[in-house]
Design a binder for these strands. Structure first.
Length: 584
DNA sequence: GCAAGGTC
C-alpha cells in the first residue's frame, strides 16, 4: 500500500501512528526520505509531497496575452527548484502499486495535491482516502480503518481555483507589464485575485484620509490632587462646541470637586487563546514590529528545528491529545518561566482556553524541546509562544473597574488589578496602567488646574502590515499561508510603501486604470461570486460547472483584454508618466 | 518577467 502525505513531517507522523513507531526511514536522495512498515501483513510505504508538485503553465510559453491555453506541468519546469523533481521521481517509482491512499490535508488544495500525484506521477486514479481533521494517533488510525473515496468535488474546486487565479493573474499582469514596456523594459507590474482587492483596501483608506474633514471641538479637563498624585478628571460631555461653553463650565467650578458616587465593577478577564498564525503575526508586529512575512519565516525555522509545532494553522485550539503537563515540565528548564509554571503544575485540571477557530493542525505550541543557539528574532518569537502557551492554561485575571462621579459632572476612570492570573506572564507586554486609590463618597478633591483645549477629530488611522493582514483575513482574501507574501509583493511592485501604509502614485494609478476602464474586475463582488461557485462545486462535483466558471472568467477577460490591447500604448503612457514623475 | 496556493 502506498500512502500519499502532504509534507514530510506528516508522512512521519502517519508512519509512526500506524506502525506503533516501528517503521523504517528509507532514503531516496540525500535529503529526501520515505517510510516503510508492515501492518496486518501488508507492506506500507508512506511518501511525502512538499505541497503542490505540479503547477499551471502557459502552453504557448510566450509573455503575451490573452493567454487562455494552460496545462499542468511539474513545478520545477517553472521555478527550477530541483527538489520537487526528485519528489515526483520518488512517486514514479511506485507506479505499479495497486493500493493507493491519499492522506493529504483534507481541503481543496490537499485533495488537488493528491489528485495530481495520482494522475501525473502514478498514472492511477483508483485510490482511497484517509480523512482526518487532526494529525493525532486516534484520528489517523480511525482514518486508516475507515478509508473513504477520493473527494472529487474538492479536487474539482481546487483545480478550478488554480485555473481561475492563473487566468486572472497572468493575463492582467502581462497586460499591465506590456503596456508600460512601450516606455521602459525593466518594469514588472502585477495584478491578481487577491492583490487587487487588497490594494483597493489601502486605496480606500487613503481616500478616507484625504477626504476627511476635521471638526474642531473643545475639551475641559481638571487636574486634581489625590493622595499626592495628580489625576486628570474629564467632563462628561466629551466634545464641547465652543470655548464659551467650556468657560461657562469653568465658572461653575469651586475650589474642590465633590465625589458623589463610586461605581465599582468587577471584571474577570479570560486568558488568551492559543496562537494561530495570524494571531502571532499580529502580536509580533505589535510588540516587536516584525512584519508578517518575517514572522512566518522565523516560525518556519523554529518548526524545522523541532522547537514549535506546525505554524501554518488557523486553529486556536490545543487538543488534549497533546501532553500539556509534559511540555510544561520541560519548559521548567527556563528560570524565567518557573514562577508561572509552578501554579500550573499544582492544578488538578489543566485546560487551555481554546478559541473557536479550528484547523487540521493544532494551534502553535512549544514542543518542549529546549532550543539551542537561537538568533535574536527566533528568541523573541519563541518567547512569545512559550508565554502564550503558559498563559492559556493560567487563571483568569480579576480587575476592578472604578468610575468616580462628582457633583460637578467631572469623572475619573481607573482599573485596579485584584488578581493577576494569566496577566502575570504577560505583564511585560501590557500597556494597561493599573492603579490603586481609595476614593470615598463626600470626598473633596482640590482642583489644581483647569485645562481647556481646542482639539480636532482625527482621520482614520493608516493600515500597517499587521492590520491589513487582519483585514484580509476578515474578508477572506488569500489564506493564512499566503497573505503575508501577497502584502510583500504589493510593496515590491511599488504599489504600497511605509510602515504605516501609504499607497504610492503607481498603486493609485493601477486602481484608477481598472476603475476607469474595467470597473467590474477589481470589484470584491467578482471574487465573492467565484468563491460561492467554488463552494457549490466542492459540495456537488460537476464537470460542466467547472467549465462554466472557467468560461465565464475567460469571457470577462477576453473582452477586457482585447479592449486593453487597443489602448495599450495609451494606458502604458499613463502609467509610465506616473512612475517617471516619482523616480526622477 | 506574471497569480495564488501548497511546501521547505
Amino acid at each position: 500500500m502506498l500512502i500519499i502525505a502532504e509534507k514530510p513531517s506528516v508522512a512521519r507522523k502517519i508512519s509512526s501512528f500506524l506502525s506503533n513507531n516501528h517503521f523504517k526511514i528509507i532514503k531516496f536522495t540525500r535529503t529526501i526520505s520515505f517510510y516503510y512498515f508492515k501492518k496486518d501483513n501488508k507492506n506500507i510505504y508512506v511518501l511525502p509531497a512538499i505541497g503542490h508538485l505540479y503547477t499551471i503553465s502557459d502552453i504557448n510559453r510566450k509573455f503575451d496575452y490573452p493567454a487562455f491555453k494552460y496545462q499542468w506541468v511539474p513545478s520545477y519546469y517553472e521555478d527550477r527548484i530541483l527538489a520537487k523533481k526528485y519528489y515526483i521521481a520518488m512517486f514514479n517509482k511506485f507506479k505499479n502499486e495497486k493500493e493507493v491512499v491519499v492522506a493529504t490535508d483534507y481541503d481543496i488544495e490537499g485533495e488537488l495535491i493528491g489528485y495530481n500525484i495520482l494522475r501525473f506521477a502514478l498514472n492511477n486514479l483508483n485510490a482511497k482516502r484517509m480523512i482526518f481533521s487532526a494529525i493525532t494517533y486516534t484520528d489517523i488510525l480511525r482514518a486508516y480503518n475507515n478509508l473513504g473515496p477520493i473527494n472529487y468535488g474538492y479536487y474539482l474546486a481546487g483545480e478550478t481555483r488554480h485555473i481561475v487565479d492563473w487566468l486572472y493573474g497572468i493575463n492582467l499582469s502581462r497586460a499591465l507589464t506590456k503596456a508600460v514596456r512601450h516606455y521602459n523594459k525593466n518594469i514588472i507590474l502585477s495584478m491578481g485575485r487577491v492583490q487587487g482587492p487588497t490594494l483597493k483596501l489601502a486605496f480606500i483608506r487613503e481616500k478616507e484620509i484625504e477626504n476627511f474633514k476635521p471638526e474642531e471641538y473643545y475639551t475641559i479637563n481638571l487636574i486634581v490632587e489625590k493622595d499626592n498624585n495628580q489625576l486628570k478628571f474629564k467632563y462628561i460631555k466629551e466634545r464641547l462646541n465652543s470655548r464659551e461653553e467650556a468657560k461657562k463650565i469653568k465658572e461653575g467650578l469651586g475650589e474642590y470637586l465633590n465625589v458623589i458616587d463610586i461605581i465599582r465593577k468587577d471584571l474577570n478577564v479570560d486568558p488568551p487563546h492559543p496562537y494561530n498564525l495570524t494571531d502571532i503575526q499580529l502580536d509580533s508586529y505589535r510588540y516587536y514590529k516584525i512584519n508578517p512575512k518575517n514572522t512566518l519565516s522565523v516560525l518556519q525555522k523554529l518548526y524545522e528545528k523541532g522547537y514549535i509545532s506546525y505554524p501554518r494553522t488557523s486553529s486556536q485550539k490545543i487538543p488534549d491529545t497533546i501532553n500539556y503537563k509534559d511540555i510544561l515540565n520541560r519548559l521548567y528548564f527556563f528560570d524565567q518561566y518557573k514562577k508561572y509554571i509552578d501554579p500550573l503544575l499544582d492544578k488538578k485540571i489543566l485546560r487551555p482556553n481554546n478559541g473557536k477557530k479550528d484547523d487540521v493542525h493544532p494551534a502553535i505550541y512549544p514542543t518542549g524541546l529546549i532550543p539551542k543557539n537561537l538568533d535574536k528574532l527566533e528568541r523573541l518569537l519563541y518567547d512569545l509562544i512559550v508565554r502564550r502557551f503558559i498563559a492559556t492554561f493560567s487563571d483568569k485575571s480579576e480587575e476592578i473597574l472604578y468610575y468616580i462621579k462628582t457633583k460637578e459632572d467631572f469623572y475619573y476612570n481607573y482599573k485596579e488589578i485584584k488578581y493577576k492570573g494569566w496577566m502575570d506572564i504577560y505583564w511585560i507586554f501590557l500597556k494597561e496602567q493599573y492603579r490603586n486609590y481609595n476614593f470615598y463618597k463626600g470626598e473633596k478633591l482640590k482642583i489644581l488646574k483647569i485645562d481647556i483645549r481646542k482639539s480636532k477629530t482625527k482621520p482614520p488611522t493608516r493600515y500597517n502590515q499587521a492590520s491589513l493582514l487582519k483585514k484580509m483575513e476578515e474578508l477572506n482574501l488569500g489564506t493564512k499561508s499566503t497573505r503575508a507574501e501577497i502584502l510583500n509583493i504589493l510593496f515590491k511592485r511599488g504599489y504600497l510603501y511605509g510602515r504605516s501604509i501609504y499607497i504610492t502614485d503607481l498603486g493609485r494609478e493601477i486602481i484608477y486604470i481598472f476603475d476607469k476602464y474595467y470597473p467590474e474586475i477589481l470589484n470584491i463582488e467578482l471574487t465573492r461570486k467565484i468563491e460561492e461557485k467554488l463552494n457549490k462545486l466542492q459540495d456537488r462535483p460537476d464537470e460542466s460547472m467547472k467549465e462554466g466558471i472557467i468560461n465565464n472568467i475567460i469571457e470577462i477577460l477576453s473582452n477586457l483584454l482585447s479592449d486593453f490591447k487597443s489602448k495599450e500604448e495609451l494606458i502604458g503612457k499613463e502609467i509610465y508618466e506616473v512612475i517617471k514623475k516619482n523616480y526622477k
